[in-house]
């Protein structure tokens, strides 16, 4: 859920969602035994080619990985400190490739198709009275509100910076949480106004 759906009609968009998810599953299992540097690099290269096949907009979506780079940095440094530079490089390349591959699926698969594809996995939850309809609503809400919450945080940062000249502080966390909670009230209201999570009586 790092990146968002990219409208389009490429080969990847047309591929069935379930096939994409199963391929991702298969690839993530298959890479485990191949613990070499050249293989990991090759895999990352293949993933980048997949993005390139979507055109210029596709390549731009590679940026999705940017927020994770510091984490990759730490993983690499830990390996260097432990004296295993090669293993560090393999770990980082492999992580990048897998994250980007998963992200590739989220940018080329419509949320609804994705939900339909994984719906059978939610069937056991029916025992607890959770409908798959509610699950897909929940997923939609997450995808929808991540950017909204990021915008809220940015506006708090702006207000803070306007008076302190510093752009970030732990002090923003409490107001951010309050804004988020207030927002859930508004969204719940909007949902209720159109019949609530279960809809109108059929």
């Amino acid at each position: 859920m790092i990146s968002l759906y990219m409208a389009g009609n490429s080969w990847a968009h047309r591929m069935p969602a379930r096939a994409k998810l199963l391929s991702l599953f298969a690839v993530s299992l298959l890479v485990i035994p191949f613990n070499t540097l050249w293989f990991s690099a090759l895999m990352l290269a293949v993933v980048v080619v997949l993005y390139a096949s979507l055109g210029k907009r596709g390549l731009e979506k590679l940026k999705a990985v940017r927020p994770l780079l510091w984490m990759m940095g730490i993983i690499f440094i830990v390996h260097v400190v432990l004296g295993d530079i090669e293993q560090g490089a393999i770990a980082v390349l492999r992580l990048l490739a897998m994250v980007l591959l998963a992200n590739f699926i989220s940018i080329t698969t419509h949320m609804e198709a994705l939900m339909d594809a994984v719906e059978p996995l939610f069937w056991p939850l029916r025992v607890f009275g959770l409908s798959s309809r509610r699950m897909s609503l929940a997923v939609a809400l997450v995808i929808r509100f991540v950017p909204v919450l990021l915008a809220v945080y940015a506006s708090l940062q702006e207000a803070y910076k306007a008076r302190t000249t510093r752009s970030n502080s732990w002090r923003l966390l409490a107001p951010f949480a309050l804004h988020a909670i207030k927002m859930t009230d508004h969204v719940a209201e909007a949902l209720i106004a159109r019949g609530g999570a279960d809809g109108f009586d059929r």
Partner: peptide, 15 residues
């Protein structure tokens, strides 16, 4: 409602 960001529940207009 006043604020569309509180009313739009889905990631795309069609949904």
């Amino acid at each position: 409602f006043q604020n569309p960001d509180h009313q739009l529940i889905f990631p795309t207009a069609l949904e």
